[in-house]
Nucleic acid binder design. Structure first.
Lengths: 216, 216
DNA sequence: CGACGAGTTGAACTGTTTCAAGTAGTGTGG
DNA sequence: CCACACTACTTGAAACAGTTCAACTCGTCG
């Protein structure tokens, strides 16, 4: 991929990376830092569709559809590797393995959104929060950031609420319930998963085997 | 695509096309008929992720991820064109334009799931149903099945409820509200959209330009 | 004819939201 | 160094949107 690389950019925390509706001609890979990907309704409500983490590949959707359906904002400072959108076609033509990997990532993203939709559509607040903690925990573990169930998590409770379609207040109270049950806690930016299996069962989710993410 | 075609299959209404968890080695294009794509939780709750219609391309996700995350069931009798999963790689290698189109479809699917997630996560029941009617109406119009806002819709209200994360009863009552307001009606398998613009505004959704779907 | 699926409507209940008030931590400026 | 503003989190109580339960209609199928 290296000769498609245009450069690197740094985005400081709180700043927008991609703005909904704009026609950003770029594709990114996240080298470092985290952010949120979200959609906003005209009246201000916003839905976080996922948390963006190192290794994520952003912008394929826009590049293909000529229309960005979401915004991305950096939560921590981020470093992104930038590709030229117009090179995608060249990639499909000359580097089918890379194109294949990129498609794999999009499929995997779609898969995740399907799970998230089922969660928000069908699960109760307690189940949703438990589900989110399992998913986030597993993703952080893949990144090697989990030490014995403990990892630091840079987002706000409001972000989790926006991701799960719950109010901030209820998200907070639900987290308190999980804490009381000894399943997990989240305080001062640190999440502690005491009982992943218990959370998983509470969330009525089945075990999924880990997938190997291709690197772009 | 024609020499990747393995054959055609017919599925009668009510039958499963793809079963969650199974490893179906096939890809399909819907030639005719409609169905639902859904995910089930272990305790039986189910979330419809989308309505499957003619022209839809199914199975890319599975083929890529080696794991099917959803089921598909035929609502009306369906005719599907079957491809061999193992040919995907050949396609990327020898027919980059086709691979590009397939990726485009996956991106477009992802885009839709993002909208659906924002709907289920943020919109009220009234807004959700209005949103769904606009989306469904537009999709049916693309298929050329809408005559002056009127089209026949083979699904049950329970299906719409499962798609929107609402109970059947409340979905029904919400439809009644839209009928009372003169925006749309749905009776005996026929949907009438009297005021698409009114529905769109009620749903707090912005206008989107139509995209050209590639045919697979 | 009886059983069954789909739709409809009313009434009771409840999970979640909204409102409200307060704590703790952090940064800013006088 | 203290007052002030501001953001994140926490907790209680009131309000309400949506669920659940229940009963009834209508058409279809065997």
């Amino acid at each position: 991929m290296s000769h498609f690389k245009v450069g690197e950019i740094d985005v400081s925390s709180g700043q927008a990376v991609v703005i909904e509706g704009a026609k950003s001609p770029q594709l990114f890979t996240v080298l470092d830092g985290m952010g949120v990907r979200f959609r906003t309704l005209e009246d201000g409500r916003s839905q976080i569709t996922n948390f963006v983490m190192p290794g994520d590949f952003i912008g394929m959707q826009d590049a293909m559809l000529d229309d960005i359906g979401y915004s991305i904002e950096a939560t921590t400072p981020m470093t992104l590797c930038v590709f030229r959108r117009s090179d995608i076609w060249t990639l499909f033509r000359n580097h089918p393995e890379r194109a294949f990997d990129m498609t794999w990532l999009v499929c995997s993203e779609e898969h995740f959104l399907g799970s998230a939709l089922a969660t928000v559509g069908q699960r109760s607040a307690l189940e949703r929060v438990a589900w989110a903690l399992v998913v986030i925990h597993d993703r952080f573990r893949q990144l090697g950031r989990v030490d014995n169930g403990v990892f630091s998590f840079p987002f706000r409770q409001q972000d989790l609420a926006d991701a799960l379609g719950l109010s901030l207040v209820h998200t907070n109270k639900t987290l308190a319930k999980l804490r009381d049950r000894g399943l997990a806690s989240w305080a001062e930016g640190v999440v502690r998963v005491f009982d992943r299996e218990g959370l998983r069962q509470l969330a009525v989710m089945d075990e999924v085997e880990r997938k190997v993410r291709p690197l772009i």
